[in-house]
Design a protein around this nucleic acid. Structure first.
Length: 576
RNA sequence: CGGAGUGUGGCUCAGCCUGGUAGAGCACUACGUUCGGGACGUAGGGGUCGUGGGUUCAAAUCCCGCCACUCCGACCA
């Protein structure tokens, strides 16, 4: 490719709207252009990178017996009515009508579509197991897209769906897929992507893992144990609290605590640590059920965990709702309420002699013991993990919070979709059975952005050879002098004939401009033809992002480049 | 959806407070001089200042509404 033909201007200055490094370089380097909020066009460099990533994904999916298909982006609402998701999913699902007023939607994921497809095709046990996948556009009407390609509304995703007869078969395939995922990230040059336990969210199902690129610019919070390597999304992470000191249960005792409606003020007033206090948070569910949550004073409620307990949407209750069941905001306790349920976090389930409210203004109770005083409460882990707490796995390390970008995920879906959509097959006895599903996603564009987050310097991205938009950057300095230009043109032809992907800067610009723009293109190998080098019969080479450079005789440049490219590819694949 | 901020040529911004009909740098075009880390000169082209209304003899500038974008939060397979 000649740069004189390449569409997409490179900019010297940082675009005002970008703060994330990948967003900045994607705009500055002429990779992407915004079309609307969270919707981008990809220019040739980004498109080439995405295509290479897609090919790696395709190879790995095929290697685990995946069959590539393509389903439509626009789906009729009936499909999503079958699983009720047309109604249960929020406004991120873009719904619209066609000209006959028929309800339609832009697919944000394809469980319904693939199940509808598979249920007419896989009606015999002989068809199982199988996996279908596609690399295709998704639309999610995000409330807040941001960060260039990291969080967009329209994006390309590889989504795969596997169907199994038994849980064991799904388990085994899930592991195969997990291995394939690690290979994909390694082959894309980011072997540091880790898999972590995650929430199953709106997809349903029981087991799920997210693939995270750990980076400070990530928007997901991850709990990490440096001792044993435990990694979990903080939404589902748990921790171990030190055993409370054994104490005799003492009788409840009222104490006047004027004006202490916050945990902080109460702890100060009583001169006790917040961990000796039990705080109360009131919620009300969609169906109007009051939920009284009690948790240790220094720990926050994890609403994602709470959602799993309540199994329906909920919100904070207002004062009137709290008072309707006898609660007194600021001085509340779960004891003696006249309605709803009480959920107690494990953090205080066995802690002795805590302080809690008395449901009486300016009054608290000493010596509250859940076992004795709230025998009917639901005990559950609904705590938010905090930095420094003890790892739940090795029980030695202290949890650290890290940040990461989710670049893929895998779910054991179970039978939610197959059951609700009545997908069955006949087993050996002719009996109808419901298949078990797994699903597996990778966001291609987000991966492009994430690689930049992981691989860049102060001048631009540093693309791994396997996904670089071009493999070789060819620069010519002072092309008007002597036979410099002719030599460069010939070299360009020779490199391309050798099967190399070359970006040739044939624009006769100053060296500084050429080098700065080449850095933005992030191509791994740079070759420099100039009168100075040619005098010695040499071409200079430089490796992007490394302090590796030297001179190669003109006659050996093509073979050198070919070997270099192959060596780099081999090096990356060796990790996979 | 809440909080904050910003909208002026393709990009980065100044001008707004104190109203008088639009500027700089980059980019673009032409010519010339340059050339090893975003060179320089000369001459050009390109903006009804997000949008609608109001105030005024006069609005980029003051007032009101709306829209868009960005950041923080809520939300998010």
């Amino acid at each position: 490719m000649r740069m004189s033909y390449l569409i997409g201007r490179r900019h010297k200055e940082k675009p005002a709207e970008a703060t994330l490094i990948s967003h900045i370089y994607l705009l500055r380097g002429g990779y992407i252009r915004p079309v609307a909020n969270g919707i981008y066009s990809m220019l040739p460099p980004a498109f080439r990178i995405a295509a290479k990533i897609e090919n790696i994904i395709r190879e790995e999916m095929n290697a685990i017996d995946g069959q590539e298909i393509k389903m439509p982006v626009v789906l009729p609402r009936e499909l999503w009515d079958e699983t009720k998701r047309y109604d249960t999913v929020g406004s991120e699902l873009l719904r619209f009508e066609d000209r006959t007023k028929h309800g339609m939607l832009l697919a944000m994921t394809h469980e319904e579509a693939v199940t509808a497809l598979a249920r007419t095709e896989a009606t015999s046990y002989k068809d199982y197991p199988f996996m279908l996948y596609q690399i295709q556009t998704k639309f999610r009407d995000e409330a807040r897209s941001r960060g260039g390609l990291i969080r967009v509304r329209e994006f390309t995703m590889k989504d795969a769906y596997s169907f199994h007869r038994t849980q064991e078969d799904l388990d085994a395939y899930y592991d195969r897929c997990a291995t394939a995922y690690h290979r994909i990230y390694a082959r894309c040059g980011v072997p540091e992507v880790v898999s972590i336990q995650s929430d199953t969210g709106m997809m349903g199902g029981k087991v799920a893992h997210e693939y995270m690129l750990l980076t400070d610019s990530g928007e997901d919070k991850i709990a990490h144990c440096p001792e044993c390597g435990y990694l979990a999304n903080f939404e589902v992470a748990s921790s171990v609290l030190p055993e409370p000191d054994a104490e005799e249960m003492k009788p409840l005792e009222e104490v006047a605590t004027p004006g202490t409606s916050t945990i902080e003020s109460l702890a100060a007033f009583l001169n006790m640590p917040e961990s000796k206090l039990a705080k109360v948070v009131f919620y009300i569910t969609e169906s109007g059920k009051m939920v009284t949550v009690m948790i240790r004073g220094d720990i926050e409620v994890n609403e994602i965990k709470l959602a799993k307990v309540l199994k329906e949407p909920f919100a904070f209750a207002n004062d009137a709702e709290i008072e309707s069941i006898g609660g007194v905001p600021g001085f509340a306790t779960g004891m003696g309420l006249t309605g709803g349920i009480v959920v107690v976090d494990g953090s205080i389930a066995s802690a002795p002699n805590l302080v809690c409210g008395a449901n009486k203004k300016d009054t608290h109770l000493l010596n509250f013991n859940v076992k004795r005083d709230l025998p009917n409460a639901v005990i559950a882990d609904i705590a938010t993990v905090q930095e420094g707490q003890i790892c739940p796995v090795c029980r030695k390390g202290h949890i650290q919070m890290r940040r990461g970008i989710e670049v893929g995920n895998i779910f054991k879906l179970g039978t939610f979709y197959t059951q609700s959509m009545h997908m069955t097959y006949a087993d050996e006895n002719g009996t109808e059975q419901t298949p078990i599903m797994g699903c597996y996603g990778i966001g291609v564009g987000r991966l492009v952005g994430s690689v930049i987050e992981a691989k860049h310097d102060d001048y631009g991205p540093i693309w791994p050879m396997t996904i670089a938009p071009w493999q070789v950057q060819l620069n010519v300095l002072k092309m008007e002098e002597g036979n410099t230009k002719t030599t460069a043109e010939q070299l360009y032809k020779d490199l391309e004939s050798a099967g190399l992907e070359v970006l040739y800067d044939d624009r006769n610009l100053s060296p500084g401009t050429q080098f700065a723009e080449a850095d933005l293109m992030g191509i791994p190998l740079r070759l420099i033809v100039s009168p100075r080098n040619l005098e010695k019969g040499m071409v200079e080479y430089k490796v992007r992002g490394r302090d590796e450079k030297g001179f190669i005789p003109l006659s050996e440049v093509v073979s050198f480049a070919r070997e270099f490219v192959q060596k780099e590819i081999d090096k990356i694949n060796a990790v996979a």
